[in-house]
Nucleic acid binder design. Sequence first.
DNA 1: TCTATTTGACCCTT
DNA 2: AAGGGTCAAATAGA
Length: 289
Amino acid sequence: MKHHNSRCLPQSSTSDHPSSVSDHRSAMKEIARGQSLVTQLRAIVLPALQADQRFEIVAQMFQNILDCSSKAITELQLDRQSDARADDALVDDKKRVRKISSDDCVKEEGATSNPNHQHKRSRRSDDSVSLETPVPHYDGRQWRKYGQKHINKAKHPRSYYRCTYRQEQDCKATKTVQQQDDSTGTDHPVMYTVVYHGQHTCKDNNGVDSGTDDSETNTQSSSDSRSSISTMCTDPGDHQTSLGDNKQLLDKSADLITKNSMYEPFDMTVFAPLDLDGWELDALLRFRA
DNA sequence: TCTATTTGACCCTT
DNA sequence: AAGGGTCAAATAGA
């Protein structure tokens, strides 16, 4: 099922619905909050069900719920963008004129650097959805980290991720993950602010479904056994203290859980419910405590 | 050897 | 000029 191209969506006039933008925004926030809660719940429930026959069903149900909310957010985003696009058209066009002309000048007169540096870096805040979660990578999507930066006045660095299928399927979805400053040294779980930008245009969840002919996996998927979810704790120092002495135990647990699920008849990588990284387990255990 | 992550540099917006 | 987002070479790990 393909998402609608925003350009193909009927233009829902904001003038017809003056409150639609704020309605969309609050709706998206609520859905995102629901996603966060479901994600947290899943992190609690699935490990407890690892030896249970109902594990698969429950995992699938969780994933279906998350898929539903993801699609709802996507639809809302597309709807909002189609509204905003009309409003922004003039403004964007002005910016674009300046951008293109300056780019042309630079490139035609011999670019000083890589021609790949053609992307705009600005992000419109209304293109994004943010949520707070103790398990920032537990969203059922596959992400690849492409950068990390220290943000001004923030204790913890911000990590930048893009969809794993960006190259293969030109999926423009990105997200940033940043640990909240006030979430260390307290009893409650470490919380992260996750901001999603853009929509997934890659096929289905993880692109896995398109590989039903998995006998001829391409070269890139040859490493699938190594990582079904390519995100992991990448903030050096951020989690070391919290992982502490329990890390080995947690790793063993994760390993055991993963092995248990490895031989299930369906592809667990779709859900990746038990592909917990150390910090996710840490967050989970703190959450449960 | 291949893929993912790290990290400094570059570039753009404000 | 500062801050933030992205790139890409270097590095790590399986």
